[in-house]
Design a protein around this nucleic acid. Structure first.
Lengths: 248, 248
DNA sequence: CGAGAGATTGATACCAATCAAAGGATGTGG
DNA sequence: CCACATCCTTTGATTGGTATCAATCTCTCG
């Protein structure tokens, strides 16, 4: 998920391969990493506790639904989708993760992951072994405080995201999805109006509880109405205000 | 929300007025209250930090959408609904709370409540002033640990509740709602199969993103199909298995 | 008892799913 | 580098589920 327009990446760093990675100060793990002194060489923080910039290739899974929760992750670059398999055996997408965002916080309490997590593109994550936090040598007080900050923000974010989508029609949901994505990318310093969707139409449809065909038709309609323009997975928002009107 | 059938209230205590209250050990605040020694007389915990069994009359609000978060609450008896007012000015129900459940955890990080909270019936809550926790005289370590436990469970619970409802049709959503309610009441020691709904059909409809009429029709259909029987707001689940089949 | 809110039921309209087919994109092996 | 297979996407025709409009009925409470 990288910008397609005039880049203005105040909180990201361009990499050689054309992708960008989020800076630590804009990452959801930052509260912990600050306590850990960013695991600087000589800090005494070993890879067994915090692995940074672990490469994950497109399509491969970081963990599976039901598996033991050994670590939580922060997206450093690239993007991920979370999915569960429903009773009929097909996949339902339950979330997307962009750089800077935390993955697996919901599994901390129960010690099991609730979904399977796959990279939508070639990506990098930081990987924090919670069970070893206590051995880090850092003050327990500070570690706990950082965890409280992370958990508190997660509770708030998950409340906000779930409350909205339920009572909306297809068009409202798609507009909300696009605007949310745009805001999340903007926080990373990308241009609000130029997005590259790393996920397929089917993934979007599944996430929003719609059919592929409906999503496709809605994109066509939004384009006809000059609210967006798109070619393939490259998307430009032409009228943010118009979109937020539709959003409800 | 009290049982209407043969009561078997292993974790609740019957009160003089016919309602029941949840025991502390089954309450979401218990991790904190344990640290605070249940605010027993002589424990040094004042009412300024933790008020127990605060009465709330039917229809009155504990707090309003957007208001400063001064405390989190646990339902001791009765029940509550959380709602937000949407752009068009009408109310959308975003949650229901039963005895033992925590309210306002999502407001801790941002210091503002995200919804208005009203009692569905004459109720009681315990009220915890977070800002005064540090002054309780109890070890900070223990307090932080309790907060982490509470937040972690909340993250997990809010994930689980949001993931499901999105891609389901009206019947599936209503069945899921009824079965979830039944389980929540069962955890309190009530009979799984006899429920008294404290909320109106409109509240249920709003919460599930359906119209009043659809909810009413669905109840009629479930009754015709011998899956439930109901008179007014008294509901009996006749075929839990059949309902969970429908649930998807 | 009467008033007003809540709940049910029916008729109709509309939105989105499904079925169906064809048009692009992507990747692989020859 | 091209041919082919496969997956993804778009568009059309039809069906079905749910909202909406409208009328009646029920319950609660003053």
């Amino acid at each position: 998920m990288s910008s397609t327009g005039p880049a203005c990446l105040s909180s990201t760093v361009a990499l050689a391969n054309g992708t960008t990675e989020v800076e630590c100060r804009h990452c959801g793990l930052d509260p912990i990493c600050m306590v850990l002194d960013y695991a600087a060489p000589g800090s005494g923080i070993t890879e067994a506790l915090l692995s940074r910039r672990v490469a994950v290739s497109k399509g491969s899974a970081l963990f599976f639904e039901g598996g033991d929760c050994e670590a939580i992750f922060a997206v450093k670059s690239g993007s991920f989708k979370a999915s569960v398999s429903d009773p009929m055996g097909d996949e339902r997408v339950v979330g997307f993760y962009l750089p800077g965002e935390l993955i697996g916080v919901d599994a901390i309490a129960g010690q099991h992951y609730h979904y399977t997590l796959r990279a939508l593109e070639s990506s990098q994550v930081c990987d924090l072994r919670l069970s070893r936090l206590a051995d880090s040598g850092k003050p327990m007080q500070d570690i706990q405080h950082a965890m409280i900050e992370i958990l508190g923000k997660t509770v708030e974010a998950s409340y906000l995201s779930s409350a909205a989508l339920m009572q909306q029609n297809a068009e409202q949901r798609l507009c909300a999805f696009l605007l949310t994505l745009s805001e999340r990318l903007h926080r990373l310093g990308f241009d609000r109006d130029y997005l590259r969707l790393a996920m397929s139409r089917s993934d979007i449809a599944s996430y929003l509880g719609l059919s592929r065909e409906t999503v496709s038709r809605l994109f066509s309609r939004l384009e006809k109405d000059r609210l967006i323009s798109m070619t393939g997975r490259r998307l430009r928002l032409l009228d943010r205000h118009g979109l937020s009107q539709l959003q409800g």
